[in-house]
C-alpha cells in the first residue's frame, strides 16, 4: 500500500496518520522555520514562525494535521517576508544584544533570522527592563532574551513534572516566572538533568562556566545554517 503524501512547495512529503505538517516535514528533512516547536513536546503554535499556506490560508504547520493531497506552501517570498516581520517583533520585544550573549552562534532565534536574511529589527525597540537571575549555582537566567516560546514551561511541566517555569501577565507584558516565593531559580527544584534545562532556543537558560568555550567560527550555526542541520530529536535542544 502506498503511503499517504502531501506536497510542500511542490515536493512530495509522506506522512503517517496523526502527524502534523511540521512533523512530516521534519521527518522528510524539509525545513520549515520554527521556534516554539520541539519534537519531544506537545505542539504549541505560539511563535507562528512555522506558518504555512494550506489551500491559500495561513496556518501554523506545527499544529495542523497532515492530510493526503494537501498543497502546502512554505518557502515563498510572501511567507518568508511575514516570518521576517515576526522575527523583527521578537528582536524589538526583548533585549537581544548578540555580541554579549553566550548563546550567540548556537541561538535558534539568531540562526533563523540569518536564514531569513533579517538585516534589521526594523521596528522601534521596546527596551524592556527585565531581570537576570544568577541565584542558581549551575544555571543563569537572563530574561532579557526570552521570546515566550514556553518550551521550558512545557518541558518542566509535561516532561520533568516540576512546574519550575510559567508565564505571567499578558499581552506585551507577558513574562516568564519561576516557581519560588522568592522568584529565584535557586529556590526551586530545577536541576541540570531536567529537560527544561536544555530546551531554551535562545540565551535565557544558560549553564554557568561554559559560555564562550567554543570559538567563533566553530559554533553550531557558524558551521551550517539552521535549515541544513539535522532535525533535532526529542530530548535534544
Amino acid at each position: 500500500m502506498s503511503e499517504a503524501t502531501f506536497t510542500l512547495d511542490g515536493k512530495t512529503i509522506p506522512f503517517r496518520e496523526g502527524q502534523t505538517i511540521m512533523q512530516a516535514a521534519m521527518a522528510a528533512a524539509a525545513y520549515i522555520p520554527r521556534l516554539c516547536y520541539h519534537p519531544g513536546l506537545k505542539p504549541h503554535g505560539s511563535c507562528k514562525l512555522c506558518t504555512v499556506k494550506v489551500n491559500g490560508r495561513h496556518t501554523a504547520s506545527c499544529t495542523y494535521q497532515a492530510q493526503p493531497g494537501l498543497a502546502v506552501e512554505s518557502d515563498t517570498e510572501e511567507l518568508n517576508g511575514e516570518r521576517r516581520s515576526l522575527l523583527q517583533m521578537l528582536f524589538v520585544e526583548g533585549n537581544h544584544f548578540c555580541p554579549s550573549c553566550e548563546a550567540s552562534g548556537n541561538c535558534q532565534l539568531q540562526a533563523t533570522a540569518y536564514e531569513l536574511k533579517m538585516m534589521t529589527p526594523h521596528y522601534d525597540h521596546f527596551f524592556p527592563d527585565r531581570p537576570v537571575d544568577a541565584s542558581h549555582p549551575e544555571y543563569l537566567l537572563d530574561f532579557n532574551r526570552c521570546i515566550l516560546c514556553s518550551l521550558c514551561v512545557r518541558a518542566s511541566r509535561d516532561v520533568d513534572g516540576k512546574n519550575v517555569f510559567a508565564l505571567a501577565e499578558r499581552g506585551i507584558k507577558t513574562r516568564l516566572i519561576v516557581n519560588a516565593e522568592s522568584g529565584l531559580l535557586a529556590d526551586t527544584n530545577f536541576s541540570a538533568d531536567d529537560m527544561a534545562a536544555h530546551v531554551c532556543p535562545v540565551g535565557v537558560i544558560l549553564r554557568k562556566r561554559t559560555g564562550f568555550s567554543v570559538p567563533i567560527g566553530q559554533r553550531t550555526y557558524d558551521i551550517n545554517p539552521i535549515s541544513a542541520l539535522p532535525q533535532p530529536k526529542a530530548g535534544e535542544s
Binding site: N95, H96, F97
Partner: peptide, 18 residues
Amino acid sequence: ISVGACAINGGLPAQRNH
C-alpha cells in the same frame, strides 16, 4: 547605510536603557 550592532539596535551603549 546603518552599519553594525550599535547603529542597528543600539548595541553596547544601549545596555544602559533599562
